[in-house]
Amino acid sequence: MTEADVVLRAVGVHVAFGGLRAVDNVDLEVRRGELLAIVGPNGAGKTTLFNVLAGALRPTKGSVLLDGEDITRQPSHRRAKAGISRTFQHVRPFLDETVLRNVAVAALANGHRRAAADTRAAELLERVGLGGRLGKRAGELGLGERKRLELARALALEPKVLLLDEVMAGLNPVEVQRIGELLQEIRRVTSVNIVLIEHLLKVVHTLADRVVVLDAGAVLVEGTPAAVFRDERVIEAYLGRKYAAS
């Protein structure tokens, strides 16, 4: 693995909230072309780590590198332009805006003018299956649609790395299936790298090339999905010592 194969790298990242160590000395690399899943029990520090990668949170120690360049001190909007885009665990569309505008405003970040941004947004919304909803207020959409809207908004930045924080959570099996297919199509069509926080292990199994398991703020195990989910330490972290033994 040479340095050129790593798109995004976190080195020795610490995040402390008062006395609580939410993220504890985490090293992470996102390799070119892969889909990386981050899993772990609630409170393991997954979203906190995401916030550090996306620039919403400055780490107490450690650094973040995008294509070898140190971006630790760059604020969110600069990183969004530089190629890191994210969705939120609890969806955050601009509720009073139309579906089209939600995505078009992100397309402005690439220097598009308004008409071009609208066109670009319409294409992406078509791709995520919201082509018939352009003029609706985002507040009128259901949860599944909002998740796809956020996905389109994140794609409008034409990112190098797409950080998806539980895009499947709260969705029914049909919608989960749909987003899974969508992610696979995005990978086929673009060169974006995807990092996924996900609780549905079945989804992780089918989509991910590599899995990183976080527990209590630290990396517990990493490897292929098959290897990781057989690992005793992972079973123990999820289900407790009793099950791990059996």
Binding site: A115, D118, R120, V189
Partner: peptide
């Protein structure tokens, strides 16, 4: 997936005027 979604990678710069008028607020 709709038919137009099987397009090429995200390189299009977009041409103005192809968005339905009613989709624009106000």
């Amino acid at each position: 997936m709709t038919s137009s979604s099987t397009g090429k990678p995200d390189t299009s710069t977009g041409k103005p005027g192809t968005v339905p008028v009613q989709a624009r607020p106000g």
